[in-house]
Write a protein that binds this DNA or RNA. Structure first.
Length: 296
DNA sequence: CACGGCCCTTGGG
DNA sequence: CCCAAGGGCCGT
C-alpha cells in the first residue's frame, strides 16, 4: 500500500473540500468514516484528507498527479477577489460566503457532468448519487482500488449508447433510462470531442447546443455548462435558486410559474448583478439555503 | 406564450 | 400510507 500522502499548503478557507464535494455538483465522491474523501478525476483514483491549514492527498495508480487536483478544484481562481465583488454587489450574500468559505466550482469532465445531470429531473440527490454510481460501476473501466473501494472511470458516450435499457431501469434510472441512451447516441453521432468543443464557444452558444438534445432543458443545460464546460457565468435556476433570485431581485415574479421567459430573466439578473462568475455566486446561495432551509 | 398532466423510485412526513 | 423530490416534454 504505502500511502505516502502528499501535503498541500491550501487552507480550508481557500479550498473547502467537504462543501465543494457535497454541494450537488458531483455525485460519485465518497466520504469515509475517517473524513477522507475518495473519488475519481479522469482515469485516476484520488484520496483527500482535509485539515484546517491544508490537506493531504494522493492519486492512484499513478502517484503525485498534483496537476489533476489543481485543475479539478480550479485552484487558479482567486476566491477573495470574488467575495469582495459579491459583497459590494449584494451585501445579502455575506452569510452564505462566511458559512461556506473555500467552496469552489469543480472543473469536471464534460461527459460526466452531461450524463449525471441528465438524470436530475424530478429526482433527489440521494437517488442521483446511486444512479450515477451504478452507471459507472456497470459501464466504466476500473482504474484503481483505494482503501478497498474499486473506482471506475466514467463510461464513454459510446458505452452508454449501447447500454441495456432494462439494466439501467433496474439501476434506478427508471423512465430516464431510454432518455439517457438516446442522448448518448446523439452525443456519439456528433463525434468525438463534440462536448469538449463546447468549452471553447461562448456560453450562450454552448447552452443552445445542449438544449437541442432531447431530455435537456434550460436548467440541466446550465448545470452542464457550469460544472462540465467551465462556463462560470452559467446560472442553473432550480426551485431553490428560483426562490432566492425572486427574493433578491424580483419579488413580483413570485406568483408566476417558471416559464422559459421567467427562467431567462432570473438567470440574466444573476449575471448582471454578480458578473462573469455568477455561477459561483449562485452555488454559495444555493448550498447555503439547502443546508439552512431558510427559504421556505 | 402560459399552464397542467405525466413519468420511476424512494425516503421522509 | 402518501407525496414531494435540485425537470422536461407534449398537449391544450
Amino acid at each position: 500500500m504505502g500511502d505516502e500522502l502528499q501535503w498541500a499548503d491550501v487552507p480550508a478557507d481557500r479550498l473547502n473540500i467537504a462543501a465543494t464535494l457535497d454541494s450537488g455538483q458531483c455525485f460519485r465522491w465518497i466520504c469515509t468514516g475517517d473524513g477522507d474523501w475518495i473519488g475519481v478525476i479522469g482515469d485516476c483514483g484520488v484520496k483527500l484528507r482535509p485539515r484546517v491549514d491544508g490537506f493531504w492527498w494522493q492519486t492512484y495508480p499513478r502517484r503525485d498527479r498534483w496537476d489533476l487536483i489543481q485543475q479539478f478544484f480550479a485552484l487558479d481562481v482567486d476566491l477573495e477577489r470574488l467575495y469582495g465583488e459579491w459583497r459590494r454587489a449584494e451585501p445579502r450574500t455575506e452569510q452564505s460566503i462566511a458559512r461556506n468559505a473555500g467552496m469552489r466550482i469543480l472543473r469536471q469532465d464534460a461527459d460526466e457532468a452531461f450524463f449525471s445531470f441528465l438524470c436530475a429531473s424530478c429526482n433527489t440527490v440521494v437517488k442521483i448519487r446511486r444512479s450515477v454510481q451504478a452507471l459507472a460501476r456497470m459501464y466504466g473501466e476500473a482504474v484503481a482500488e483505494v482503501d478497498g473501494l474499486v473506482l471506475h472511470a466514467f463510461p464513454t458516450a459510446e458505452r452508454i449508447a449501447n447500454a441495456s435499457e432494462p439494466a439501467l431501469r433496474a439501476a434506478l434510472w427508471g423512465y430516464r433510462a431510454p432518455v439517457l441512451i438516446d442522448a448518448a447516441r446523439d452525443v456519439s453521432e456528433r463525434g468525438d470531442g463534440w462536448l469538449d468543443s463546447l468549452r471553447a464557444v461562448p456560453y450562450r452558444e454552448a447552452h443552445a447546443e445542449l438544449t437541442s438534445i432531447h431530455g435537456i432543458g434550460a436548467k440541466i443545460a446550465d448545470c452542464i455548462c457550469l460544472f462540465g464546460l467551465w462556463h462560470d457565468e452559467a446560472v442553473p435556476i432550480d426551485t431553490h435558486v428560483r426562490r432566492i433570485a425572486m427574493r433578491l431581485f424580483r419579488p413580483d415574479l413570485a406568483i408566476k410559474s417558471l416559464t422559459p421567459a421567467v427562467y431567462d430573466t432570473l438567470a440574466s439578473l444573476f449575471r448582471a448583478r454578480f458578473g462573469p462568475y455568477a455561477g459561483w455566486a449562485q452555488q454559495y446561495l444555493f448550498y447555503d439555503s439547502l443546508r439552512h432551509a431558510e427559504d421556505r
